[in-house]
Design a binder for these strands. Structure first.
Length: 557
RNA sequence: GGUCCCGUGGUGCAGUUUGGAGUGCACGCCGGCCUGUCAAGCCGGAGGUCGCGGGUUCAAAUCCCGUCGGGACCGCCA
């Protein structure tokens, strides 16, 4: 039916007789015998010059046959890829008529209510931006598959209708026809299956896996999402980081054309200490400054704490009113701080001075040491939190994001590995049991393994062989080296207070499998939806990208 | 399960604080004019159960109660 796509026509095609098919995007009439029709397909738009367009309307589906010609002097449109040419001497064939669309199918659709766009998803998809998103996602998945294939990974499909597995979220369930009152669960992740693959000698597994979790939604969280899931045998952390880096780099290059290069690493402790987050956004500075020593001998009661840190908001004083400071203080308290100390850095007699409700409690020496430690300049605002190390970092990390985080499409792509996560998150005060930070199959760091026999202090100091991939402050994915030996696994279960019965009920088939010879193995999974969203600079990943064909589910729910 | 915000022609909004005729803006739509536009322009027109139900009032888009729908966040997502 057609010889060319609309968006592909260029000066090189001048003189060719072409047929193009698509939707009428916009028409501009200049009397009975001259009209411009912008014809749109998934590649873009091209201007067609027709003799009268009275019987053409928006979104009519047409086939236009004509001759490509250069646009007259002065009428070239540089904003359009096809802007140097137009299709003239047009014969127009209407293939389908159309009612006016309920919302504009151009950039202005971004302002339209999402429910309206979802109700007419097929119209939203016609938009150039949506086509770009859709195709970016496809290109990414294709590149990832090639990259995994090239590294010897085997794509394995794991079951969708399964017995409930013990991940943390609520299962989506499907009623069984043959056994009324019983249900299948839909997988929250293929975690246990991929470990079975390792026992089964698959060696290197991957899957573009759909995962479903019946939890309440958030702006960036959907019922179902897609993970690139992988696992490798006779491999450790370095092997996984390398393999994932190759796949992610291929994905990024497929969408953006830009190389990724080496992905820097931070230990979990350093990430928390410097950025107050286990998924630091390193597109901007404003790192946390430790000033505990400055106030080691302070008289100010609020600063008699194990850890005091500061965030410096350069030049922030002028634009920050008292209301804002009160608001930030409220937030800091909601985030878990006892309070938030702020200080305006001002010009005093013979040097800078600090303007703050608590300044009178601080000695001159403490004030000047604080200024020196933070590098504060006149016009800056300093924020301080004093608490235990963990809480101080956490609160200031959130404050740092609030004060300095750039928009989603600025600052480039800052990938980061965060390694050496703690093995245990906490020790339950009631039971004395440690709480695993990842999952109970996570391998402890080899050096730290002896600490398993220690007390709570030792346990909380233990590092694990778990790692996260972070992009611009988002946790893209996580993984770990798994415990493959029964004796060590038993020790961890004992520590966690997981009884033999419970372990058998929850993970029985995996533990059984491990009795027959489990290779050392390690793996990773990362969220495809968020990666695509970040690569195309889109704020809302899932609404625009993966709920393409089942948006009605959202409305039913 | 909880807190808060929003429902006004097809779309996006203003009007609600302080009740007074469905009042207004932009886009879209329909008709007319227009031979180089590209978010074309100019002129004219159509299009409304102000989410729904009840209450207060001489009078409700506006105030009160309830309800439905949508959104954000908390809990939750090992």
């Amino acid at each position: 039916m057609r010889t060319h796509y609309c968006g592909d026509l260029r000066s090189a095609d001048v003189g060719s007789e072409v047929s193009v098919c698509g939707w009428v995007s916009r028409r501009r009439e200049h009397g009975e015998h001259l009209a411009f029709v912008d014809l749109r397909d998934h590649t873009g738009v091209v201007q067609c010059v027709v003799d009268g367009a009275a019987d053409l309307r928006s979104e009519y589906v047409v086939r236009i046959t004509g001759t490509v010609r250069p646009r007259p002097e002065g009428t070239v449109n540089p904003a359009l890829a096809t802007g140097e040419v137009e299709v003239g001497d047009c014969q127009v064939e209407v293939l389908s008529v159309a009612e006016p669309p309920p919302f504009p199918l151009d950039d202005r659709a971004a302002d339209v209510d999402e429910t309206v766009r979802l109700r007419h998803r097929y119209l939203d998809l016609r938009r150039t931006e949506m086509q770009r998103n859709l195709r970016s996602r496809a290109a990414l998945l294709s590149a990832v598959r090639r990259a995994m294939d090239g590294q010897g990974f085997v794509e394995v499909e794991t079951p969708m209708l399964i017995a409930s597995t013990p991940e943390g979220a609520r299962d989506f369930v499907v009623p069984s026809r043959t056994r009324p009152g019983t249900f299948y669960a839909l997988p929250q992740s293929p975690q246990l299956f991929k470990q079975l693959c390792m026992v089964g000698g698959v060696d290197r597994y991957f899957q573009v896996a759909r995962c479903m979790r019946d939890e309440d939604l958030r702006a960036d969280r959907q019922f179902e999402f897609t993970q690139l899931d992988m696992e490798m045998s006779f491999a450790g952390q370095e092997d996984v980081l390398t393999a994932v880096t190759v796949a992610v780099a291929a994905a990024v290059e497929a969408v953006t054309g830009q190389p990724v290069g080496e992905i820097p690493r931070l230990t979990w402790h350093e990430a928390m200490d410097r950025f107050g987050s286990d998924k630091p956004d390193v597109r901007f500075g404003m790192e946390l400054v430790d000033v505990t020593e400055v106030f080691a001998a302070t008289e100010f009661n609020a600063f008699k704490a194990p850890c005091i840190k500061a965030v410096r908001h350069a030049g922030g004083s002028e634009g920050t009113g008292r209301n804002r400071l009160d608001d930030l203080t409220d937030r800091a308290k909601r985030w878990g701080a006892k309070g938030l100390v702020w200080m305006r850095v001002e010009q005093g007699e013979g040097g800078v001075s600090l303007n703050s409700p608590v300044a009178k409690f601080l000695s001159d020496g403490e004030q000047s040491a604080l200024v020196a430690a933070t590098g504060a300049q006149v016009g800056d605002l300093l924020y301080l939190v004093a608490d235990d190390w963990r809480r101080t970092c956490h609160v200031l990390g959130l404050l740092r994001l609030e004060l300095g985080r750039p928009p989603v499409d600025e600052g480039g792509l800052q990938f980061l590995w965060v390694v050496d996560f703690p093995l245990f998150e906490d020790v339950d005060e009631a039971t004395g049991r440690p709480v695993p930070a990842h999952h109970p199959f996570t391998m402890p760091n080899a050096e730290d393994a002896p600490l398993l026999d220690g007390g709570p202090e030792d346990l909380l100091r233990m590092r694990s062989q778990a790692y996260d991939l972070v992009l611009n402050g988002w946790e893209l994915g996580s993984g770990s080296v798994r415990i493959h030996r029964g004796d060590l696994q038993q020790k961890v279960f004992d520590l966690l207070g997981i009884s033999a019965e419970e372990a058998h009920a929850k993970f029985g088939f995996l533990l059984d499998a491990f009795r027959y010879g489990a290779p050392p193995h390690a793996g990773f999974a990362f969220g495809v939806d968020r990666l695509v969203a970040l690569l195309v600079g889109e704020e809302k990943s899932s609404l625009l990208l993966h709920h393409i064909l089942n948006s009605h589910l959202d409305q039913i729910s």
